[in-house]
Amino acid sequence: MKITLKVWRQKNINTAGKLVEYQLDNVSEDMSFLEMFDVLNDSLTRKGEEPVAFDHDCREGICGTCSMYINGRPHGPQTGATTCQLHMRSFNDGDTIVVEPWRARSFPVIKDLMVDRLAFDRIIQSGGYVSVNTGSARDANEILIPRTIADEAMDAAACIGCGACVAACKNASAMLFVAAKVSQLAILPQGQAEHKERAERMVAQMDAEGFGACSFTGACSVECPKSISLDHIARLNREYLGAKLTSDNING
């Protein structure tokens, strides 16, 4: 296959970037999208041009590191998959593929296609946990969790924190990410003790990071590699409103 790539090149956060065109002539359809980038980088290096920087690690769709906006969609044309799970057989000979980094104020570009997603870590730090110290847990089977509940919590917990939801959303909203964690812990009995503060604090942090609001377009869920449902956003809204109306926190 012959592929024309238009790739966002940007030296660092302080420099303006632009799309640069590259031609690749020997692309196999069994290659993964990132392997195609390896081939590009190999040829750039041999020519003496600096290779394209992009985030990637596990290359099996679970670590959430890879983050390319491919032909107008996060993680490319395939749904339910990350960039590293995309294969060239999803494209045709002669295609032009535009590759950009995630775009959001809260995800500044570090270099080329690489962005900083520390905002997500800070949101989890604000409340995405159950406060239990090591060693103080009771026997695991003392907490009965019906299978349906465990399954629903698992659906939410499957989030890989890649940021495709933010990248896809026209408002760069992080609601699906925040909802997935709030919802997982709101469903499970272990999360009950802190469920009010958790919703309040995580939403406050999400806002402080500068993410947009939810317009319920559903783009996040469609583009989510783990297909996390909008039900969780509704649950987050419920949790948040319930917390705001009934928590003891009168200072905001």
Binding site: Y129, V132, A140, P146, Q184, L188
Partner: peptide, 16 residues
């Protein structure tokens, strides 16, 4: 025990 207390959603039987 520790992981369950943290909210790790291990697979469950119907009875919980």
């Amino acid at each position: 025990d520790q992981c369950v207390a943290q909210g790790v959603p291990f697979a469950r039987e119907y009875g919980g």
